[in-house]
Computed example of a mutant assay.
Amino acid sequence: MRFLNQHRGTLVTAVIAVAVGIASYAVVSSDPLAQRSRRSFTIDFSSVYDIDPGLIQFEQTGEIEVQLDDVRCMDVGPADKIYVAGDQAVRVYSQDGTELAVIRTEGQPGCVAVGGDEHVFPGRIYVGGGDRIEVFQPNGSRVGIWNVPEQNVILASIAVAGNDVFVADAGNRVVLRYDPFGQRVGTIGDPDNGGRTFNVPSAHFDIAIGSEGRLHVANPGALRLETYTFDGALEVRWGEPGATIDRFFGCCNPSEFAVLPGGEIVTSEKGIPRIKVYSEFGEFECVVAGPSMLGVAQSEIGDPRAVQAEAIFDVATDSRGRILVLDPRRKSVRIFERIGGDDA
């Protein structure tokens, strides 16, 4: 039992790797065009690249060009203002794409979050990068800097509730809980208190506020999403590895996600980029966009070079139920709305 507790994360990763390998083999073996000689073996990703058009229930209705060379992350704040971070700055846009402000940061942003109307400081901007969080007033004036003293810190995501600010540290695989003044009041996934909770193979470790005092956390190495109370009690976990559209494909997904006003969860996957909608409890509902709609060619799938590494699409939602997709290759925010109606 002690061995299992000590090596639980390694065993989970190994099981997932085997499952993904089986899924990849199934993709190949089910398609006669994928048969290759041993000297030129190539995986045919067509069965996961092509998406049934009947499952796609959103269409792109707008696009905002972003004046940043290195587009990193995005959030939506009060009045549906759009905040896009990168190049040591946060650029603020109105719903129609008008640039409203540019806020300069000391470090390179890795994540950004904005306090909503329910936050004790509505419109306050939190920018994570390196081992610290820069905090700004809605007008862009600096409030202060919160330093994270641990080693190997990689701040991957921030989520803002009424009186709490949660910060996901991918380097240490924990979620830190702060009060609005920068005092740490808790940790979710602390390995010294019950063993390692989150399997985070890369720098993508997303979090978002759910309904009624709940926090959604991506557990990417386990290919699932989990829901916790603010105090860290696990309530719900869902998600399965696999190539079918209702599952998460690859080594570590979802890479990004966001919550719609009705509680539904929008997920974004890397490797084979596809954006989908699930109920708050994990029932697959529909597709927002697949690889071809996102401008990723089938020939790029599985390509380890920079062109594929850059095909990671952050997502956000606004009060109207629109889904915003940050496209790092087009350097733009692409706006998707439900086909045939405004309700999401």
Score class of each variant (00 low, 15 high):
90 V>W: 01
13 T>M: 12
109 P>R: 07
313 F>I: 08
214 R>G: 06
76 V>R: 03
254 P>D: 05
335 I>V: 15
14 A>V: 08
140 G>P: 09
168 A>E: 02
333 V>G: 00
291 P>C: 14
223 L>W: 02
134 E>Y: 03
192 D>A: 14
292 S>I: 02
244 T>E: 14
177 R>N: 07
45 F>G: 04
227 T>C: 00
5 N>Q: 08
99 E>C: 02
10 T>L: 14
325 V>F: 02
176 L>M: 08
136 F>D: 08
344 A>F: 08
262 G>S: 13
90 V>K: 03
88 Q>A: 04
150 E>F: 05
174 V>L: 05
113 A>C: 12
283 E>M: 08
234 L>Y: 02
216 H>E: 01
171 G>W: 04
22 I>M: 12
339 I>V: 14
147 N>I: 10
89 A>G: 04
137 Q>V: 06
335 I>Y: 06
125 I>C: 11
93 Y>V: 10
265 I>M: 00
46 S>N: 13
80 D>H: 08
138 P>V: 09
234 L>F: 03
235 E>C: 04
52 D>K: 06
326 L>S: 15
246 D>V: 04
344 A>V: 14
46 S>M: 11
132 R>N: 11
306 A>G: 09
192 D>E: 14
72 R>A: 05
33 L>T: 12
80 D>M: 09
108 Q>G: 12
73 C>F: 10
142 R>V: 09
208 A>Q: 07
314 D>Y: 04
268 S>M: 12
210 G>T: 00
280 E>L: 10
321 G>I: 02
25 Y>H: 13
116 G>W: 03
206 D>K: 02
244 T>F: 09
105 T>W: 05
195 G>T: 09
124 R>W: 12
83 Y>L: 11
206 D>R: 01
309 A>E: 13
283 E>V: 04
93 Y>F: 15
325 V>S: 05
248 F>I: 07
194 G>H: 06
154 I>N: 04
238 W>Q: 01
232 G>V: 07
68 L>V: 07
42 T>I: 12
198 F>V: 00
61 T>Q: 12
191 P>Y: 10
276 K>M: 12
182 G>Q: 07
17 A>L: 10
250 G>N: 04
141 S>D: 15
173 R>G: 01
167 V>K: 01
71 V>I: 10
190 D>Q: 03
216 H>G: 00
290 G>H: 06
162 G>N: 15
217 V>Y: 00
240 E>T: 11
3 F>Y: 15
184 R>E: 13
285 E>Y: 01
107 G>E: 08
22 I>Y: 11
